[in-house]
Simulated assay, not measured.
Amino acid sequence: MQRLLMALLALAIAACSGLPFNAVAPKVSVADVTIKSLGLMEQRLDVGLRISNPNDFDLTIVALEFELEVNGHPFASGLSHKATLVPAVASALLRVDTYMQSKDLIRQFKRLSQGALAAGVPYRVKGRFKTDKSSGWMPFDHGGVYGGDEKPQDKAI
């Protein structure tokens, strides 16, 4: 009876995780950033997020929210409710309208030097998403270095 109870508890915990048992959470990273509009108080960006699905089943991202940090400081944030299919063992690009406050942009310009640009600029994207296979939100956190004299190197955080 105790074994049955433990097995049921393990299944209940796996069901609450949001993905099927033995599934691996998708990886989210920044693919590109494009300026859409510049304003006095706020800038609008188009951020391409690369979502990689290592599982042997398709996932549909139904909602996503994130914050982008550059050089260790807030840069932009965005959210999407656009359903995006991420095929099994593949990746998809999710385009997200993103907003940045002018004060954050000015702060970044003050911190960046020519030497820092040559070395590459560290970034971090963190947030959460919902899939068609999950009842709750699942977090993500990924960092890397953009630009520099060498090839860009991504590292998982």
Rank of each mutant, 00 (worst) to 15 (best):
K110M: 12
L94K: 06
F66I: 07
L64S: 12
V86Q: 04
G72A: 06
D104M: 01
L105C: 01
L38A: 14
G39Y: 02
T60N: 12
I61F: 01
E42Q: 09
R50P: 00
H73P: 00
V62W: 00
H73Q: 15
M100Q: 06
V70N: 05
L64P: 10
L49K: 10
R50E: 15
R95A: 15
S52I: 05
P26L: 01
A63R: 11
E69V: 07
A63W: 08
G72N: 10
D56L: 05
V96P: 10
S29K: 12
F109G: 07
S77N: 13
G78F: 08
G48N: 13
S80A: 10
S37A: 15
D58S: 01
E67A: 11
E69Y: 14
P54S: 02
I35V: 15
S102A: 08
T34I: 08
S77C: 05
L45M: 11
Q108A: 04
V24K: 01
Q101D: 09
G72H: 03
D56A: 08
V47H: 09
E69M: 13
K36N: 15
Q108L: 10
M41F: 05
R44V: 02
L79Q: 15
A25V: 14
V33D: 09
S91K: 06
S52K: 12
L105A: 13
V70Q: 14
F57E: 05
P26Q: 09
R44C: 01
V70H: 06
E42G: 03
N71F: 14
S77A: 14
R44D: 11
N55C: 03
L59D: 04
A76V: 08
K82S: 11
H81W: 08
K103Q: 04
L94P: 02
L59E: 07
L38C: 10
